[in-house]
C-alpha cells in the first residue's frame, strides 16, 4: 500500500477544499458541530497510532494530553486572550514536553505496565486541575467566544475547518514517520525490542520522540475544545472515553498504515454521533466496546488488514 507523495498532498488539498466549500454552502450548523468531533478523533487516533501502532506501546493517557491541551487554551484565554491559532501551537508545545517527560518516566516499562502508568498520568493531571482555582476547579470555567473571523459566518464552522487542517497535519506527520527510517525503527521496537537495540536502534530515544510527537498532536486536538463548548470542566476534558476511543479507532481501522486510524476514526466517530442523536449518548460507549471486541477477535489487522487480504485474494485469482 504505497501512496506517492503528490497523491497524498493533492488528496489533502481536495479534502480541505471540500471542507471549505461545505462551510460556505451548508446552512445547518449542527452538521459542523458533529463533524468537528469526528475530525477531532481523526487527530487523536492518528496521534495515538504513532506510539501505540508503530511502536506497540499502548497508551491509555490520550485523555491526559487532550485535557492538558484544553486547559492550556483556557489559561491563555484567561491570561492574555490569545487567538485560537496560538492556543493550538502553545498546547502542542506543552503536550510535546509532557509527552517527553511522561515518556522518560514510563517508557522503560513494557506492555501492560506502561499502559497502567499512562492511566495514572491522566488521574494525576485531572486531580491537579480539579484543585486549581484559576482554571475553575471542579466546577469548570465559562469561556466567551470572540467574534468570528472572516470569511466564516459561524464559529463552529471555523473550528471545523481548523480541525480539518489539524487532521491533515497530523496525518502528514504520521505518514512521514511511517515511511521513513524512524518508522522502521519503531516497527523493529514493536517486533522485538532487544533485537532492535542490538541492531543499532536507539530504542529509548525513538520511543521518547514518538511519545513527544504523539502527545503534541493530542494536546493540539484538545486546544479548540474550550472555544467549541464555550465551557470546560475537568471531568469531561480528561474523560477516559477519549483514551478508549483513540485506542479503539486505530485498532478497528488498522494500525500498520496511516490510513487505518483515519478510517477507524471516520467510521467509529460517525457511528457514535449518529447513535448519540438517534438513541442515547450512553450507548455510543457500548458501540466502541462491541466493535473493539469484534475486530480484535475477527480482524486483528483492522479494516486495512481485511482490505490487504482481499486484494491478495483477487491477485491470486488473476494469476
Amino acid at each position: 500500500m504505497k501512496t506517492n507523495g503528490y497523491g497524498f498532498w493533492i488528496g489533502s488539498a481536495v479534502v480541505l477544499a471540500l471542507a471549505c466549500i461545505a462551510a460556505a454552502t451548508i446552512k445547518n450548523e449542527y452538521y459542523f458541530f458533529a463533524a468537528y468531533i469526528v475530525v477531532q478523533f481523526v487527530v487523536l487516533a492518528t496521534a495515538w497510532n504513532i506510539l501505540g501502532g508503530y511502536a506497540g506501546y499502548v497508551n491509555f493517557g490520550t485523555s491526559a494530553f487532550f485535557g492538558v491541551g484544553a486547559y492550556i487554551a483556557v489559561m491563555l484565554i484567561k491570561w492574555m486572550n490569545l487567538p485560537l491559532g496560538l492556543q493550538i501551537v502553545a498546547a502542542a508545545c506543552v503536550g510535546g514536553a509532557l509527552g517527553f517527560a511522561v515518556g522518560l518516566l514510563t517508557l522503560r516499562l513494557r506492555g501492560i505496565f506502561f499502559s497502567i502508568a499512562t492511566v495514572a498520568v491522566t488521574i494525576i493531571l485531572e486531580t491537579a486541575v480539579i484543585n486549581w482555582r484559576f482554571v475553575g476547579g471542579a466546577t469548570g470555567v465559562q469561556i466567551l467566544r470572540p467574534p468570528v473571523m472572516e470569511p466564516f459566518d459561524s464559529y463552529t464552522k471555523m473550528l471545523f475547518v481548523c480541525a480539518v487542517i489539524l487532521a491533515i497535519i497530523a496525518v502528514a506527520i504520521a505518514r512521514y514517520i511511517e515511511t521513513s527510517w524512524i518508522g522502521r525503527g519503531l516497527r523493529a521496537i514493536r517486533d522485538n525490542e532487544e533485537a532492535a537495540e542490538c541492531t543499532g536502534v536507539p530504542t529509548l530515544k525513538l520511543k521518547l520522540a514518538a511519545c513527544a510527537i504523539s502527545g503534541a498532536l493530542m494536546s493540539a486536538a484538545g486546544a479548540p475544545l474550550a472555544m467549541y463548548q464555550s465551557f470546560v470542566e475537568p471531568a469531561s476534558a480528561f474523560n477516559l472515553t477519549y483514551s478508549v476511543s483513540a485506542l479503539a479507532m486505530p485498532i478497528i481501522g488498522g494500525t500498520s498504515h496511516w490510513i487505518g486510524p483515519v478510517i477507524g476514526a471516520l467510521l467509529l466517530g460517525t457511528v457514535q454521533q449518529v447513535v448519540t442523536v438517534t438513541i442515547s449518548s450512553e450507548l455510543n460507549v457500548l458501540v466502541v466496546g462491541v466493535l473493539l471486541v469484534v475486530f480484535v477477535v475477527g480482524a486483528p489487522q483492522g479494516i486495512v488488514g481485511l482490505f490487504v487480504k482481499l486484494r491478495e485474494k483477487i491477485k491470486g485469482k488473476n494469476i
Binding site: 527510517w181 522502521r184 525503527g185 516497527r187 523493529a188 514493536r190 517486533d191 522485538n192 532487544e194 533485537a195 532492535a196 542490538c198 541492531t199 543499532g200 536502534v201 536507539p202 500498520s256
Partner: peptide, 27 residues
C-alpha cells in the same frame, strides 16, 4: 559488536530484506 540470538528474534512484521535494512539504516 554484533550478535545473533540463541532463540532467533526476527522482526516478524518485516520481510527478510527489511530485517536487514534496520541495521543498514541505523548503523
Amino acid at each position: 559488536i554484533a550478535r545473533s540470538f540463541q532463540i532467533p528474534r526476527p522482526f516478524t512484521s518485516m520481510t527478510v530484506l527489511e530485517n536487514l535494512l534496520v541495521p543498514l539504516e541505523f548503523v
